[in-house]
Amino acid sequence: MTCALKITNLHKTYKNGFVALRGVDLYVEQGDFFALLGPNGAGKSTVIGIITSLINKTDGQVSIYGHDIDNHFAEAKSCIGVLPQEFNFNVWEPIEEILVNQAGYYGIERREAYRRSELRLRQLALWEKHQEIARNLSGGMKRRMMIARALMHNPQLLILDEPTAGVDIENRRTMWDFLTQLNRQGVTIILTTHYLEEAENLCRSVAIIDQGRVIEHTSTRTLINRLGSETFVLDLEERVTAPPRLDCHAVRVIDGSTLEVDIDKGVGISNLFATLTHMGIKVLSMRNKTNRLEQLFMQLVDNRKQP
């Protein structure tokens, strides 16, 4: 499989002496949907900044589709589309103009740029607003406009730095569908997000970065399989006064009609339901207390904090 992104021994020390990256190694396969996760200040945005040449690296190599960013910067940049975390467009320009200009920076003729901007704006349900100045768009629309802008030159690698931050649930799901479709068409996607549900649902591979180092780099499935136990929340039909005694599971009463049950991996939940039914406790609904990836993420990051 061709490598979409290869980062080797990446270091970054800012002028104020802050060491943001301490030898990051990453490998993203072509066609992958890759999550780059980490707590605030872990170094995710620095990695993205270096890939997109907005931040100068201190040391290390970065190659995009085989193009080294130091020696073949134009070829490397042509492969990337970027959606940064913060809005970075001229708020006084009409959105169609922003898109057409972006295409122009990649050497795309104006007529073709107008055609592509219409296509992308229609795909992202923004065509009605194409003459509107960017300032007048809602937060969600601005994000979608930025996705459209990042796609103007049909990049092979799309880097999304918290694309759904501040976006409502409906728009987030529409965006997920769009990104999934894009990935199916062959676009490699790197996603950073604080919504771990998003990463779990969308991404096939994941890397967790903390304190400037990659602490985990594997497939999402492998990572989730490492989870020792999951906590479920059960909504009951009738109130209980004390937690029911369940041999294999730790149980807590949250309020009278809600239980929290820890279920070890491999034990299965059929026994739990059978036991509860035998006790006369009827379960109305069940859900994960936290997203599985979130639980793992917290474990990994917490482990590193402990001396």
Binding site: T52, S53, L54, K77, P84, N88, V91, I98, Y105, Y106
Partner: peptide, 14 residues
């Protein structure tokens, strides 16, 4: 100031 210089900086424009 508005950071849209980044549009150019991330592009292959010399």
């Amino acid at each position: 100031f508005q950071r849209h210089i980044e549009e150019l900086m991330v592009s292959p424009t010399p």
